[in-house]
Structure formats: structure tokens, C-alpha cells
């Protein structure tokens, strides 16, 4: 069995992993949600088509998303140091996680909003709704469950990325797995961290799906 010290370390790992995952998802949405809305609005058949704004956001999203996360992590070390004051530990890892997540979230949000039936938007326009009213009273409402499903997937992905950041001292369960499993050959601890990551992932997925289904009124 594991010693008490190891258990405490693992519990702290869970805490740090959840902290990194949830906070980066949250901040990711603060940036990505408006970006996704603007992408949806400015696309050629959106509510307010604008080629230039769409192209710029589209370009930013594609560039960041085409850089592998591990490389982004290293590339961003000077920036992270400037923002957080250090380049290791869970708080520092949130910086590259957010930068990686925001464009991804923007894309997921854009896709969810693009799915909203054009007829419903047309009906809202016919009622005399302004674009702002259409966004808040129609688009976000009708895309609600699709957005929730997107958020669930995003959280799962960020969980995986937060673990990956362990390879460069990012903190959390991934960090423990790399330090003990890879550098010290303590396979037992590594296996436990992997199992914990799987369990956390499952909980996030199931909870997300349940919440999404609960709020979906389309086919109940």
C-alpha cells in the first residue's frame, strides 16, 4: 500500500488538477465565448457579416490550434513568467492552458451557434429584435445544450492537457505521474495517477452529459 505521504501528495495532485482544469476552462470561456459569438455574427451569412473581422479571428484560431500544446507550453514560458511570476506550478500552467483553450472554445461555440435554425432567427428578426436581442434571447438559448456538450468536451480535453503540462513541471496528477513513474520508476504511483485521471475524466463526461440532457427540451 501507499504511504500516507504519497496519499497526501495524490490528494494535492487531484486538487491541483481540478484547479487547473476548471479555472482554465472558465477563463477560456470568458475569452472564447465572445470570440465564438463574433465569429458566428461576422461569418458571410451571419447577422452582421464582416469579412475582415471574421478573417482575423479565423486566422488567430487556426494558428494557435495548429501549434501542438506541448510546444505552445514551452513557447509561452517567457509570457507565463511575465504574467504569473514563475513558469512552473499549477497557476503558471493555467496561462498556456487558457491560450490553448480559448481559440478551441471559440470554434466550438461558433459551431454550436451556426447550428441554430435560420428560420428561428428569421422569426426573431420579423418580431423586430435587434442583433443583441437575437444573440441573448434566441441564439444562446437555442444553442444552450449544444454549448453545454461543447463545454463538457472542452473540460475533458483541458484535463488531458493539464496532465501533459506535468512533463515540464506543471503540477497536478500529470506532474506526479511524470516525476514518480518516469524519473523514479515508481510504477505503482504512476498507475494510481492514471486511474485517478481516468476517473476524473469519466465524472466530468457523465456529469456534463447528464446536465446537458436535463436542459434539452427538444426530444423529451
Amino acid at each position: 500500500m501507499l504511504e500516507q505521504k504519497a496519499i497526501i501528495m495524490l490528494l494535492e495532485g487531484i486538487r491541483d488538477t481540478l484547479y487547473m482544469t476548471l479555472v482554465s476552462t472558465l477563463i477560456g470561456y470568458v475569452i472564447g465565448l465572445p470570440m465564438g459569438i463574433v465569429l458566428n455574427l461576422t461569418r458571410p451569412d451571419g447577422l452582421k457579416p464582416n469579412r475582415i473581422i471574421y478573417r482575423i479571428l479565423d486566422f488567430i484560431c487556426n494558428i494557435i490550434r495548429s501549434v501542438p500544446f506541448l510546444i505552445l507550453l514551452i513557447l509561452l514560458i517567457p509570457f507565463t513568467r511575465a504574467v504569473v511570476g514563475q513558469s512552473y506550478g499549477s497557476s503558471a500552467t493555467i496561462v498556456p492552458l487558457v491560450i490553448c483553450a480559448a481559440p478551441y472554445i471559440a470554434r466550438v461555440v461558433e459551431a454550436s451557434l451556426n447550428e441554430v435554425d435560420a428560420g428561428v432567427i428569421e422569426a426573431a428578426k420579423a418580431m423586430g429584435a435587434s442583433n443583441i436581442q437575437i444573440i441573448f434571447r434566441v441564439l444562446l438559448v437555442e444553442a444552450k445544450t449544444s454549448l453545454m456538450a461543447g463545454a463538457t468536451i472542452t473540460t475533458g480535453i483541458l484535463l488531458g492537457y493539464s496532465a501533459m503540462s506535468g512533463t515540464v513541471g506543471g503540477g497536478g496528477l500529470g506532474d506526479i505521474a511524470v516525476r514518480y513513474g518516469y524519473y523514479r520508476w515508481q510504477t505503482d504511483i504512476m498507475i494510481v495517477t492514471v486511474v485517478l485521471l481516468i476517473v476524473i475524466f469519466q465524472i466530468i463526461q457523465n456529469l456534463g452529459s447528464k446536465i446537458t440532457a436535463f436542459f434539452d427540451h427538444r426530444k423529451k
Binding site: 428561428v120 422569426a123 428578426k125 418580431m127 437555442e142 445544450t145
Partner: peptide, 16 residues
């Protein structure tokens, strides 16, 4: 437009 109601073939109700 608020003074002109409109209905459609596909009803266009908010499903949620």
C-alpha cells in the same frame, strides 16, 4: 416589424 406578424411553413418556434 413588431407591427407586422409573420408565420412560416416550418413554424420556427424556439425548441428550448
Amino acid at each position: 416589424r413588431a407591427n407586422i406578424g409573420m408565420i412560416f411553413q416550418g413554424f420556427n418556434l424556439l425548441e428550448q
